[in-house]
Structure formats: structure tokens, C-alpha cells
Amino acid sequence: MLTVENLTKIYKTGDRALKDVSFTVQAGQVVGLIGPSGAGKSTLIRCVNRLVEPTSGKIRLDDRELTRLSGAALRSARRRIGMIFQEFALVERLTVMENVLSGRLGYVPFWRSFTRRFPQTDIDMAFALLERVGLSDQADKRADALSGGQRQRVGIARALEQDPELLLVDEPTASLDPKTSRQIMRLIGEICAERNLPAIINIHDVVLAQAFTARIIGLRAGEVVFDGEPDQLTDKVLTTIYGEEDWNAMRRGAEEDSRDNQEAAERMAGLV
């Protein structure tokens, strides 16, 4: 169970990306997070695995408080939180198998990952996952040789290889065509159901969100303005979330991106 309490994020530029966000996600529940770009969706899920440092508030996964962790403890928390990315974020020049196995990095010592000698159980799991996502014969292809839909399947397999307790999904369909988008959303839904795995899915496409999630949280300017079932999402509610005219929101979205990049650079500076 994931509990988010009074989560607030203020960027160095002074922008409040998240204001007092609170919600809980039960085991096996798939939550769609909708809202205009710049509403803080991406910041919110990145706060959960601490790719973005929250300013205040608490995030608990089961009994573990995530916001205070650092070093090895943070890494061992991260390895139980799978993440699926918008642009797939596969390591393009590694093979499909290496990408899937990179999900085990938090579990194996450096020499094993460096020599690519992962435990046989990890390799078995990786093959099983590739089969599950329908790529069992692509294991030795390089990731950049795959199509968009196939890459996202590898991304899903990598997240599952972590043996996660929670799935964070950031705009999984933004770089895909409509048909592939539905296939990917269906696959994520099925997998979560099979494993009783909770998931938070950032998604800008309201129709897809309604079709494939059990619960929807609407975010506007960093605040939760809707939290309910997909069929409660009326036009009136949508207007509250997206506004009549959301040009301003779009402009903020661009700002948030550049801010995210800046944050990313700062984080990287701290990593090594």
C-alpha cells in the first residue's frame, strides 16, 4: 500500500509543482493520474522513487518511509519500485536482455553486473518476462533495433524484473500510435492484475485512462482536484481539471520540462 501525505514540491525557481498532495493506493489498484501538462504529474511520480526530491510531506510504501532514505537504503527501496518511461529510456546500445537484466542491478554486486554474470534465477526470470511481453526471440537484439511498441514492452519487462511492489508509469503511450497505445495499456493492466501490483499511471489521454484504470486522480496546478472512479469523470469535472483554455498550462508545461532537466543535472551531479 502506498500512502502519500501532504506532499509538496517547490523547485529552486520558486515554482510550486505540488501542493499538499495526499492519497493512498491499495494493493492491486491501478490509478490513472490525469491533468494538463505542467500540473505536476511527472514530478509526483518522480517524488515517489526520489528521482525528484520532495520539499515536504511523507511517502510510505507499506511501512517504509521513503522521503528520509539515502544511500544504500534508498537504493534498496528503489529496487522494489518499477518505473516505465515515456520515451522508453532503454539503454539503446545494450541488448534487449541486458536492458531487462538491468532491472536486477539493485540486487547484484558490481562485479556481477559488470561481467554480465547474473544469477541463473535472474536470467530465468528475464526470459519468462520476455515471453510474457511477447519478445522471447528478441533477447540478443540491440534495443535500438526494435520498434516503439516493442521497446516499451522491454521497458515493462525491465520494471518487472525488479520484482516490484509498486509500478510507476510515466506517460507510457506518449511516443506510440493509438493502436499500440491500447495494447501497451492493456498489457500493463493485465500484468498488474496477475501480480496484484499497484500502479500509478501518468497519462494525458483521458479516454485511455478511463478505459484501462480503476481509479482516476485529477491534478491541476499541483493540487488534487478529482479523485474517483472513471465514470464519475464528467465534462464538468474535466473542465475543472483542464480548464476552458489551457494555454497557460501548456506554457507552464514547457517550463516544468526545463526545470526537470535542471533538476536532473543536479541529481546526476550528486550521483557519482
Binding site: M97, R116, I123, D124, M125, F127, E131
Partner: peptide, 15 residues
């Protein structure tokens, strides 16, 4: 639970 995945396939990184 990991034995569920047993496939017996080994894997080496291709050069």
C-alpha cells in the same frame, strides 16, 4: 517463487 520462471536457458552477453 522464483522457480516458477524456470526455463533452463542460459544467457551470455553477445560480444
Amino acid at each position: 517463487m522464483q522457480s516458477v520462471f524456470e526455463t533452463g536457458r542460459t544467457w551470455r552477453r553477445s560480444p
